[in-house]
Amino acid sequence: MLLIRAHQLMIFNPRVLDLIFPENSTKPLTQQEHEILKWACIGKTYSEISLITSISVRTVKFHMRNIVEKLDVANAKHAISKAQQEGLCLQMP
């Protein structure tokens, strides 16, 4: 019965889904994370990114882990793919 009632609520008020599953719950990326993602989208390795940005490989991996969490994806490759699909690679500062 609960399932039927929930279905009826969603039919009459589709905004109920927005309360349950917010679409834009991702946190914004920092400028450093944008830069890391930009270089990753181009195809640079972590060691190349560390040389370009003058930070350690460990720090690059730290930022990439944060990017993965903020974009709500499984791994770095998925983050790059999602960024390309959503046009984030083109909008980098």
Rank of each mutant, 00 (worst) to 15 (best):
R15C: 13
F12S: 15
I80E: 08
I55G: 04
W39K: 01
C41I: 06
I42W: 02
Q8G: 03
E35D: 04
L2I: 03
Q85I: 06
L9S: 05
K61R: 08
V16E: 12
M64R: 04
H7P: 05
Q32P: 00
S81P: 02
K61H: 01
I80T: 03
F12Q: 15
Y46K: 13
H78P: 05
R15I: 14
E48V: 07
L3S: 03
Q85D: 11
D72I: 10
I49W: 00
T26H: 12
R58S: 10
F21T: 09
A76L: 07
E33A: 03
S81H: 12
S47E: 03
S81K: 04
A74I: 13
I36G: 00
A6G: 13
M92A: 08
T26K: 12
R15Q: 14
D18N: 12
T53L: 14
K44P: 03
V16R: 14
E86M: 14
R15L: 14
R5M: 06
G87K: 10
I42Q: 01
M10A: 09
A83S: 12
S54P: 01
R5V: 04
V60N: 03
E69R: 09
I36R: 02
Q84P: 09
R5K: 09
K27E: 07
M64H: 02
P22D: 05
H63W: 00
K44M: 08
N13R: 12
D72L: 10
I67T: 01
P22T: 06
W39P: 00
C89R: 05
V73R: 04
L88V: 15
V60S: 01
C41M: 10
G87T: 07
E33V: 01
L90A: 07
V60H: 02
K61S: 08
H7T: 13
K38H: 01
H78S: 13
F62N: 06
H34A: 08
A83P: 08
I67N: 00
Q85P: 00
E33P: 02
S56M: 06
E23F: 12
K44L: 08
I36A: 13
N66D: 11
L51E: 07
D18V: 15
V57W: 02
E23T: 15
M92Y: 05
A83W: 09
S54Y: 02
A83Q: 12
P93C: 08
L37W: 00
K27Y: 02
V57K: 06
V73W: 04
T59Q: 11
E69I: 09
K38G: 05
P93E: 08
I67L: 12
I52M: 10
E23G: 11
R5N: 05
L9R: 09
W39F: 03
L19I: 08
W39S: 07
G43E: 11
N13L: 14
S50D: 01
I49K: 00
F21W: 12
E33W: 06
S50W: 04
L17V: 15
E86V: 12
Q85E: 13
P93S: 09
T53R: 04
G87F: 12
S50H: 01
V68D: 11
Q32A: 07
Q8H: 04
P14N: 13
H78C: 11
E86A: 13
C41F: 03
Q91M: 15
